[in-house]
Design a protein around this nucleic acid. Structure first.
Lengths: 193, 193
DNA sequence: TGTCTCCGTTACGTATGCGTATCGTAATGT
DNA sequence: ACATTACGATACGCATACGTAACGGAGACA
């Protein structure tokens, strides 16, 4: 849904409301998922009434899609010289973004609602998951180019293992060990000797 | 919820209905999640009416809990002499159980509904996730005991990596590479040399 | 001032779903 | 046969939520 800024006369849209609504929708998607998210509660959380939401997005699906599309990739890891420490800081960043309350809920929502709203899942993957994968893949390749990682290394599997250990720990126990980054890094180094 | 079989007189419970209801509930939990699951649709799918469901379980929460509790761990991997091939067949089994339609949806449901129904998530972990982790952990330890894996190996991280690569691939792309087991095994062997 | 559009308030109609109740009928044990 | 219990069919009250409509007031521009 594209909100076209009509330059016609009349009272202008409250742009603060736009952001407030989107942010409330993002929170609720992560907290309770798409099914449990209600326009009413989103509007209330944004300090707005229901019709105001419908003036901007024409349905609940539309709002959810806009909320996912507006998800910001908060901060790409700053580049460092050492490939391995760059990978580690990427993992730290990954952990921070997922360890917030309900950080994993959004992923659960995507997995669950995938059958019902495939576009929503695809959008989430494109916006959130893929960029990180790309960054990690680039780092491993850089390591190969610099000779820090052997030539024939399986980069895709290494990337999957790097973030997969987090998923596995969380799914199994609901938490991730404090020294997760270190242990995962150690395993990767051993595998890519 | 424990359905105590009263031996009193009267028409006996249709035990086929019990199973049909539970199975329908399991399917719906995986298909659409707890929030979207309705007693009405479960009853319909089980060829039963709503009151019949409520005669057995006193609420929707109760039914969902029973459905999760009744999830069968289908077949533990048959023991083999070679530790590594035992691990591999465990991975194959893991893949098969999750690659069915909506196989990952149940995990999404748990992640999403964790905040709302912690007992349900805990039950799922205890019944489904933990047993596999235990089996894999035991296999790695067996490998250490037999000298096939070095003494100080980080078993917990290895287990997390073994199944974590599956999660990572699926979350990122909605699918898992055909040769996932081989590549993951190769990485594990390299890491635990 | 006039005209436009947004906003909040309130209300409406519709749909869905939970949990309960009633009633006639079917299936058991005594 | 009789009491007892489960079953299907149907309905009810209640709550939630979607999406729309009508109204008066507020903010902008000409």
């Amino acid at each position: 849904m594209v909100t076209i800024a009509t330059k016609s006369a009349g009272r202008p849209r409250d742009e603060g409301a736009d952001r407030a609504i989107i942010e409330a929708a993002q929170r609720q998607l992560a907290d309770v998922g798409f099914a449990q998210m209600s326009i009413e509660s989103v509007a209330a959380e944004a300090g707005v009434t229901r019709p105001t939401v419908y003036r901007r997005w024409k349905s609940k699906d539309d709002l959810a899609t806009a909320a996912i599309a507006a998800l910001q990739i908060p901060a790409p890891a700053p580049e460092k010289d050492d490939t391995w420490s760059a990978i580690e800081s990427e993992l730290v960043h990954f952990r921070r973004s997922l360890e917030r309350p309900n950080g994993m809920s959004m992923i659960g929502m995507v997995l669950l609602e995938e059958g019902r709203m495939p576009e929503l899942a695809a959008l989430f993957r494109r916006r959130i998951v893929e960029p990180r994968r790309q960054r990690l893949t680039a780092l491993f390749r850089q390591g190969i180019a610099r000779g820090e990682i052997p030539e024939g290394a399986d980069v895709a599997t290494a990337v999957a293992a790097a973030i997969g250990t987090f998923y596995a720990h969380y799914i199994a126990t609901g938490a991730v060990p404090r020294n997760w980054e270190r242990k995962t890094m150690a395993m990767l180094r051993a595998a890519l000797s």
